[in-house]
Write a protein that binds this DNA or RNA. Structure first.
Lengths: 250, 250
DNA sequence: AACGTCATTGACGATTCGTCACTATAGACC
DNA sequence: GGTCTATAGTGACGAATCGTCAATGACGTT
């Protein structure tokens, strides 16, 4: 094909192509049945070329994880432009996570895998570094809003907690909920009656109340704030999600 | 050996033996390098026998996950006997989780793997069922304390939230923190300066404050409450953890 | 047109998996 | 105590998967 053309541009494009092909494959088969041979068959490149990009299956899964973070950063950046109090904007951003989970189920599911120790243990150092950089960018979006909250007086950091700790704690809580309710993403009926979006909302609300970020949930109906924010900023995405037969129950 | 002796007792003992041998192995090698052959070599049984217990490596990992939950239930049951307010007892129980994480690092690390979709996808239905039953038992311990809190008037359930939702949300938050700070379990210095025990404490505190579970953290120094609870109820475990060179920084 | 360079290829050896035909043994029955 | 049977246990083997590397070919250079 192109022997003397190792320009980064097309290399990255091909990496993306492999990732997208894998995701397409993962809409039909489970991660546990994913093999490199199946990926190679799905793609116009040979095994050697694929291995040139990804040192092993786990490395590819991590690549997908990073791709997922890119997607998230895009969605988060849109949510953060929501007009409202700093607490509302924080909550809006959290919900962009949910939109992503519902919009790209295969990506979401696979990205979770990429966090497991068994995958990380086989991931190339470069990709881990990339992962951390992306995580940092994501966290920075939250930092910004926390600063806003402190600036406008609606939030003061708890004793012994830095901005980073607050932001990390909130993120981890939401992450835990999503991991644990992930199974039922498609079945709609929640695990023992739990709905992802409900518990995600509850977790965020309790967290922000716990931080004493004003106005508290007792003073304001955040459920409808979120609802209208979603309809306004993510109309297209909601359309796609609904077309797939998944209703957001809030 | 024993042809006509399929008593459940010894079968379960052997299952445990295989699990413990695997955990021993996992103190030296990473999960990603774990193979069934290595396990078989570590154990006085043959491949066929091991496969009789566990249908594949993933099934074994899930078995380890369930074993971990057993361990946790044991520790939790001890923490719950702490004398103090209902909120204190809740917090004590949360911290039993941390004790477990520090006491059995290999078990803890592996149990995390067992939650990943790629592992669950290959786990036998029976074991998944067992997992859910154990999860239920664990949750029930939390239910109990939430009931106590409601009974003694220090807690009222938030609008639109059931006992189950509260308990789930709290659990998931703690779980997320632990997953995300897991890497550094042994390195002691936290990820970008975050310490597992610190953030675990913070998350629990914010969560309980968010629930408005009295007395709030502004009214009571829970840090020292936890400290003395640990010294009192988990002296032996703390000893072991310290002997390994890990200090609990609270 | 001959050469050098480098991306690409896919066949192959190595590893790992999971099965199954066979062996061993404890008890039942004569 | 000898034989028979049912079941636990074994480990060699075929199948699947992995990751490599010697060979190929496309393109720029001389």
């Amino acid at each position: 094909m192109s022997p003397r053309a190792l320009d980064k541009q097309s290399l990255q494009e091909r990496e993306l192509e492999i990732i997208e092909a894998t995701l397409l494959l993962l809409e039909e088969i489970d991660v546990s049945q994913l093999t490199m041979d199946k990926i190679v068959a799905q793609v116009p490149y040979s095994k050697g070329t694929v291995y040139g990009h990804f040192s092993c299956k786990e490395d590819l899964l991590s690549g997908i994880g990073n791709y997922a973070m890119h997607t998230m950063i895009g969605l988060f950046s849109r949510a953060v432009e929501h007009k409202g109090s700093s607490r509302e904007r924080y909550q809006a951003m959290s919900f962009a996570y949910l939109i992503y989970a519902l919009l790209k189920p295969a990506l979401f599911r696979t990205a979770l895998c990429s966090k497991s120790p068994s995958v990380i243990g086989k991931t190339s150092p470069e990709r881990i570094q990339e992962h951390e950089a992306l995580e940092h960018r994501l966290m920075a979006l939250f930092f910004k809003i926390i600063d806003d909250g402190i600036a406008d007086g609606s939030l003061s950091l708890p004793a012994h907690m830095s901005k980073q700790q607050v932001s990390f704690t909130g993120w981890a809580s939401g992450y835990g909920v999503i991991i644990m309710l992930n199974d039922d993403l498609n079945s709609c009926a929640g695990r023992h009656g739990l709905y992802l979006e409900q518990e995600f909302f509850n977790t965020t609300t309790i967290f922000l109340d716990g931080l004493n970020w004003h106005p508290l949930s007792s003073e304001r109906d955040y459920r409808s704030v979120i609802k209208s924010m979603l309809e306004e900023r993510f109309a297209d995405e909601l359309e796609v999600i609904r077309a797939r037969g998944r209703q957001l129950v809030l």
